[in-house]
């Protein structure tokens, strides 16, 4: 994708004449860049720093880069590992919290939607890109039109539908609207399949393979990488989703992390929110994101830059 471009050296580097002076002149630019990096990352440090501060000490200990008496009690209590009394002593409101459960629900929600949506939308994208059938372009245009519709318009009736089906607080209600399709993925994958060379597919066709075999045995294995990249983006979106899970599945057994954080804030007293607990819960919601960056940083960066190139 963008690999060959990003390999090239920064513009202007390597001119032998005045390397030293150039470096000095570039110092302010470097300072700006590092400052921006600081603004990006400092809030996350502050989140962790608050999460490891003992709750009762927070009013007097909220300025230093490190807390005076670091502790893991806040993580233990949002995960439901300590008794209610201990949790209350550490600054909790006494409300039951089990972030292990919410974490699991988030993983299930994200995993199900990412896998199913990517496969189904890849099938559809391939059909739109390569197969010939009546009404193809008209149908595709309907999907493109759906891209423009703000989700809240379909969210209201979808909520009513899930409620009428008796699916509130169930997994099927939670995943139903996004499991099979999102117009963006269909659109994106069609463009993607249009852009890859047809040689191998044609060879398989000459060998007598039908479209079904070609798709599963030839195209999918060939495009594993880019599909995985798209799946990463879908996973990030789904993981971040808030309004839908909050509406349809606020119950303890199906509550996902984002909804849990919102509900946690609501249960916490308005005048002095349980900041140490909230930040511990918040930190837990960021862990998978950081893992993504550590393991798939290049893929993530490439996928974003790739969508920029297409613009």
């Amino acid at each position: 994708m963008s690999a060959p471009v990003s390999m090239s050296a920064p513009v202007g580097v390597g001119a032998p004449a005045s390397v030293g002076r150039r470096r000095l002149r570039r110092l302010p630019a470097w300072i700006c860049l590092i400052l921006a990096l600081g603004i990006s990352l400092f809030p996350l440090w502050w989140m962790l720093r608050t999460a490891i501060t003992p709750g009762p000490e927070l009013p007097s200990d909220n300025a230093g880069l490190l807390p005076r008496h670091p502790t893991l009690i806040n993580f233990e209590r949002v995960l439901g590992l300590v008794s209610r009394d201990e949790a209350r002593a550490a600054g909790g409101s006494g409300a039951n919290l089990s972030f292990f459960l919410y974490l699991r629900n988030s993983v299930v929600y994200t995993g199900l939607i990412t896998c199913a949506q990517t496969i189904f939308c890849a099938m559809a994208g391939y059909a739109f890109a390569r197969l010939r059938f009546r009404g193809r372009d008209a149908l595709f245009n309907v999907f493109v039109a759906a891209l423009m519709v703000p989700p809240i318009f379909t969210l209201l009736p979808n909520f009513a539908l899930v409620k009428q089906l008796g699916w509130l607080n169930t997994y099927q209600g939670l995943v139903a609207p996004s499991l099979l399709v999102t117009p963006f993925a269909v659109f994106f994958l069609r463009q993607f399949f249009l852009g890859i060379p047809r040689d191998v597919e044609q060879a398989a066709f000459i060998d007598g393979a039908g479209p079904w075999t070609i798709f599963w045995r030839v195209v999918l294995p060939m495009t594993k990488g880019p599909l995985f990249t798209l799946a990463l983006t879908t996973a990030v979106w789904t993981w971040n989703d808030y309004l839908w899970p909050l509406l349809v599945a606020p119950g303890e057994d199906t509550r996902v992390l984002t909804a849990a954080l919102g509900i946690f804030l609501k249960q916490s007293p308005n005048t002095s929110p349980d900041w140490t607990g909230l930040m511990a819960g918040s930190a837990l919601s960021v862990v998978p994101v950081l893992l993504l960056v550590v393991f798939f940083g290049r893929r993530l960066v490439d996928s974003i830059q790739f969508s920029g190139m297409k613009g």
């Binding site: 990352l41 971040n240 808030y242 984002t258 930040m279 918040s282 919601s285 994101v289 960056v293």
Partner: peptide, 20 residues
Amino acid sequence: SLLVVPWLVPNVTSALLWMW
């Protein structure tokens, strides 16, 4: 990769964090 980290943080989390 580091610059893109805040984009990966759930909206709810960043809202809570900044509220604090």
